[in-house]
Amino acid sequence: MDKPFNFQVDVRDLQILALSLFLTIGLTQGFDFTIHPNQILTAIVVTLITQYLANRFLKRQETAALISRSALITALGLSLLLRSTSLIVIAIAACCAILSKFLIRYRGKHLFNPANFGIIAVLCFTEQAWISPGQWGDSFSLALLFVGIGGVILSWLGRWETTIVFLIVYALGIAFRNLWLGFEVDILWHELTSGSLLVFAFFMLSDPRSIPDHPLARVIWSSAIALLTLILKYQFFLATAPFWALFFLSILTPWLDSVWQGKQFNWKTTTYSWGENNHETAKL
């Protein structure tokens, strides 16, 4: 008991665990994801290699980690959302996702959520990719799982308002539409428990490295995304509306950051000591 046992926790480890859990559920619990383990492997390998090479040659780092947490998160996010029958398309998406972090930047931040960028890139430029918005269905227990785990991670990150505001504005939008159309309440419920919507809201929308820095800016930004999602979904009948809304409105982030300046987000790792009460948090 002389030496306290220390272990470090990075919130991204939790994210990786959570996304892996969802992927496992999707693959094994009869959800019939049209995804093959090869595709997941491709996404992981390509994101890791791209990240490594970009660190070495674009960022000119002398030494770069082989396993990058954020690249893994991007790979898992792509695997959860993107569907294709071609490994090449998956590889292109993974590569574009990571490169967008290095090439499309402003003030030291990347402009787009990497997985979102990768998905939009292959949706636009290949004929062989799609998203299955219905893949999770509207199960209440799954919704609870997504909200529970997502909530823990977001409160740890301190970026929960982005997701909450998005969901509130989106829910209000649907509620008003339902009221106007005379739909029953269960339609609202059906829409809000959509697994795909919740995964998007908790695990893609709130990427702390690309969203606006100031809380007020984030509230405005995510409200705008929710509104654009509603418009694309109900006026343009676009089933993949949230991804397009996030993509287009990410372009506003630099402007929002210039109007409301906030503290830029940095990943932290928390060291816990076994048997001691204190823990310390370090910036990465």
């Binding site: 294709s84 062989q128 799609w130 009948f237």
Partner: peptide, 17 residues
């Protein structure tokens, strides 16, 4: 009615399997 409160919406995909 209870299981399917909404009308069915579809999309086509490039999946030719």
């Amino acid at each position: 009615r209870d299981l399917y409160p909404e009308d069915l919406r579809f999309q086509e995909t490039p999946n030719r399997k």
